[in-house]
Design a protein around this nucleic acid. Structure first.
Lengths: 131, 131
DNA sequence: ATCACTGTATGGGTTCACCCAAACAGTGGC
DNA sequence: GCCACTGTTTGGGTGAACCCATACAGTGAT
């Protein structure tokens, strides 16, 4: 399988899964329409509870990267993926600029994270919802 | 006093205090060398536990904005304040640009926070080497 | 209908952030 | 020493995040 996690890294398991699936999609290892491993199958493979996989897949679905159909499986979304990957990469670049700038100024990491969070809270959300 | 908090806003009390002290310093309401309200005094005023104030002051000290001397009080740091305020404001602007960009692209808040966190983890801290 | 797969929902245990009450400890004036 | 201030430390309660075990529910082939 294409997933490998580290249960003792402090990073929640379901987030590790989310991150790796995301990369697999971004890298093309998972193409639109492809089916992800089944909840039970993947859970058995990495010796985790199926609910944990569900949580990871739910988050991916909430972000529009995958679609799940009850009884059939979970699939990589068709259209929006490219846009999202692009968008993410743009945001990543912006984030990197931000971090580099902060580092040069000697601003602590926690500080940077806090500032971003504050900014997210401050700016009105507008209408965002998945689907 | 110059502090006003909202215990039911979801934002931790100690973080509200930190933010407001920070602004007071940035705006000049608190100058280098000034003494902050005592832990007990401030706690009594806003009907909170002294420990909560301590946590806020500790965070401010950790960021180099204030210095505390046991038995005497907590004081605004002398030198570094200006630089830090400036740095923070710069980072804030960068963060705002980042958020605005992310919003326009339809990237979810959690996603943005995650990207920033990932970037912080990815870029080496020590200030040596550039990826 | 049954079977073997798929995802979904519920309830419990562990861990951690946040806040509190109360006891501990330093400073300086009397 | 005593006292009235200052910051510090310890232990506990509440709630949320994370993970789990287990039972519930949809799909499609037989």
């Amino acid at each position: 399988m294409f997933l490998r996690i580290d249960p003792s890294s402090g990073v929640p398991i379901y987030r590790q899964i989310v991150a790796q699936v995301r990369r697999s999609i971004a890298s093309g290892a998972l193409a639109p329409g492809d089916r992800l491993p089944s909840v039970r199958g993947l859970a058995g493979e990495m010796k985790v509870n199926p609910t944990t996989i569900v949580k990871a897949y739910s988050e991916l679905e909430h972000d529009g990267l995958v679609e799940t159909r009850h009884g059939m499986g979970t699939f990589v979304s068709a259209e929006r993926v490219d846009r999202r990957v692009e968008a993410r990469s743009i945001v990543e670049q912006a984030a990197e600029r931000l971090v580099v700038e902060a580092r040069q100024l000697g601003v602590a990491d926690e500080e940077v994270a806090r500032i971003v969070q504050d900014t997210l809270n401050r700016v009105p959300k507008g209408g965002r919802d998945g689907s």
